[in-house]
Design a protein around this nucleic acid. Structure first.
Lengths: 231, 231
DNA sequence: AGTTTCGTTATCCAATTGAATAGCAGCTTC
DNA sequence: GAAGCTGCTATTCAATTGGATAACGAAACT
């Protein structure tokens, strides 16, 4: 656990429009969600207590019941927030659509690696939940993960059909790419202890993205690099 | 959680040598360890209760205290068992040492992917522990993970120096390879729900190993495969 | 201004948890 | 075969947990 997320705003001043109550309610809700994300990510669903989350957010734990019904509801709301944010932040910029498929994919990798570095909670929460086999996992798969994966599959098929990529099993492609991008940031603690490297460093992040691209998407660059280091 | 691990032997018959007590003690200890591995893997350290583990092993929960002092001791004993087994099962066969570096590495990947498929608990336990930042993680890093990583680093450096591999950051190489091999089996539940594929299938395992080799180690094969699907 | 609404806190409850202690039964040893 | 060691069970304890209920107090509505 790092530090408590910055409480959004002074939490007391009413916005220009709408009534004060509803606005403050939304702020509190968002604050709890933010804290829930961090605590769930660090300790998993069972390991995280609603009391810890509430305490972290500086509110009474009964309030969580009021806003989210129960712990399960809180988790789902947090994951919903997580994926909404993912979709926002991963949206491809207009100009990308004009690039050839392989270049589009490289740009997508760069975006995704940066996302993973910015929000390691995402992989942390979802991996812990996938390790267990819960109703929550099935809910998340159906609602978010599977649809997202369909898109990755289409991207992969496009590459294969364009003749710029080997035709490995789709699921292998999916897990290799995603894991390669996520793991270093998901396991930041381990990395810190093994290599003494802080993954918050932008250079480390960008270098990792380029490493993935070199290994997985840039045959020519890879051969050239190998040739270079040979001489 | 699948089914309880087969209790080793009838647990009552004394072995030919040694006294019955010590032998049975060792058997019980091993049984508890086995169960602890499964439960820790599925629920993480905090989520797993010593009572569940004991119940799963069919022994009184006080017995865990007797054998392992406390929950922390049980976890460490389980992880020790895990890495000892890893080292046994991952030892390279004699003839591998005669292969060129790149071929050695491919053989190593095949062995490692099969290991990950056979023992998904390994990645499950260690990933959950790395996500949190505990004294246990530091213990495991110092004792097992870092030494193992040193070896992977040397393997990588040898490839680079032989001019058959691009010189990306060592830590990136490490996390890309390891994660690519582990993730599919670690997240078997997710995979089941997304793709309906059972990772217990040997063909799926071997195909995954070949996919990794194609993408990450076999430049020529990759280009050929891409060319093939283009025509 | 008086009343109602509702976001929030304070308490309480039963269940579970890690740990500690005491006791038991049957190998082992002499 | 008696004594005692020891692997194991039974029970107890305090702390924590998710959840439920009641009370409060300030905003919102009339």
């Amino acid at each position: 656990m790092t530090t408590a997320p910055s409480k959004p705003g002074s939490r007391k001043r009413p916005g220009k429009s709408g009534n004060l109550r509803t606005e403050q309610k939304a702020q509190t809700r968002a604050l709890i969600l933010q804290c829930a994300l961090e605590v769930f990510a660090e300790r998993g669903f069972d390991g995280a207590s609603v009391r810890d989350i509430a305490g972290f957010a500086g509110v009474n734990h009964g309030l969580i019941r009021y806003h989210f019904t129960d712990k399960d509801g809180l988790w789902k709301a947090a994951v919903e927030f997580l994926f909404d944010r993912l979709h926002e932040e991963m949206a491809a910029p207009e100009e990308d659509t004009k690039l050839p498929p392989l270049e589009q994919t490289k740009a997508w990798i760069r975006r995704y690696v940066r996302y993973c570095a910015r929000h390691p909670e995402h992989a942390r929460i979802m991996v812990q939940e996938s390790i267990r086999d819960s109703e929550r996992l099935r809910w998340a798969v159906k609602r978010f993960i599977k649809p997202d994966n369909e898109e990755t599959r289409r991207r992969f098929r496009r590459l294969v059909e364009a003749g710029v990529y080997p035709d490995i099993p789709e699921h292998s492609f999916n897990y290799i790419i995603t894991a390669a991008a996520q793991s270093m940031f998901m396991l930041a603690n381990e990395m810190k202890y093994i290599y003494g490297i802080d993954v918050a460093d932008d250079d480390v992040v960008d270098a990792h993205a380029e490493a993935i691209i070199t290994l997985l998407f840039d045959h020519r660059a890879k051969r050239a690099a190998a040739r270079r280091s040979r001489s």
